[in-house]
């Protein structure tokens, strides 16, 4: 019995391509994947583009231009399942730093002829514009987690991925807590697991690239590190404003400091 292979499309919005690359990076699994999925649209891999409808759309990147506002709606219309992949698609990405600044001033500083630039004042996640079936966090996403998403899709199941903190990954592996043992800033306790505690394993505090975990409480962590580790308000805001600046929990906490000032 041969079944029609589900059709996959991979889309790019405002992003660095790193998350799409994670799919190409699945070298050992690509052939197996090809047996079960028909890659119908994937510009980074092939210029052969087949029209929709698609069974699964992986969407990378944030919405940051007026055309993208329309394009994302078209994609939703043509796709049975939409999965947002990576920090850009799930929280606006690094480029969401613009959300905290004056966009006109920024374009004037950066571009020689700002008049040619058509952009939105905010960089926003896909879920702000269309219904998204699943969000895969991370900057970039983990290849193993992506395979779990694809495998679950093929098996008709919901992906099973952790929503707990990076700390759990440290503890499972016996990685020493940098914050308690050295007073170093680490966003691990408010960040979602998935990276395998990559940074703490290499003696660096987590900077939150996997985004807020379930029930993330940046405010509580902020109060502690400011009082006990003498982190300044300005530095705390910088910690929160990197790869996941636009994630609502992180943004709310960083904005609280600006309001206070």
């Amino acid at each position: 019995m041969t079944r029609r292979r589900p059709r996959l499309a991979v889309w790019k919005f405002t992003s660095c391509d790193g998350c799409q690359l994670s799919l190409l990076d699945c070298e050992d699994e690509l052939l197996t994947l090809d047996r079960h999925i028909d890659i119908a649209y994937f510009m980074e891999a092939t210029s052969r583009a087949e029209p929709g409808p698609y069974d699964l759309s992986l969407v990378e990147g944030s919405i940051s231009t007026p055309e993208q506002l329309e394009q994302i709606v078209r994609i939703r219309d043509q796709s049975r399942v939409v999965v947002a992949i990576g920090a850009c698609a799930t929280s606006g990405g690094l480029q969401a730093l613009r959300n905290f600044a004056d966009i006109d001033e920024m374009t004037r500083v950066v571009y020689a002829s700002p008049a040619h630039i058509q952009t939105l004042s905010c960089s926003t996640p896909i879920s702000q514009h269309i219904a998204v079936d699943f969000e895969l966090q991370g900057c970039p996403i983990s290849k193993t987690q992506l395979l779990e998403v694809l495998g679950a899709f093929l098996r008709g199941e919901r992906p099973v991925l952790p929503t707990y903190s990076v700390c759990v990954e440290c503890k499972l592996q016996g990685v020493l807590c940098l914050s308690v043992s050295q007073g170093r800033t680490c966003l691990g306790p408010i960040t979602q697991a998935g990276c395998g505690a990559l940074c703490p394993r290499y003696d660096r505090g987590c900077f939150g690239c996997y985004g807020p975990k379930e029930l993330s409480q940046p405010r509580a962590l902020g109060e502690f590190v400011k009082a006990q580790h003498k982190v300044s308000d300005r530095d705390w805001v910088r910690w929160l404003r990197s790869y996941q600046a636009g994630a609502s929990e992180f943004a709310k906490e960083s904005e609280r400091h600006e309001k206070d000032r």
Binding site: T32, H36, R155, C167, K171, L172, I190
Partner: peptide, 25 residues
Amino acid sequence: LACANCTLVCPTCFCSNTVEEVSLE
């Protein structure tokens, strides 16, 4: 922070979860 550190460093906590790793196919 509901980070779970306290339970994971606690020498008496015993909770576990069963997780499955399923191949792509």
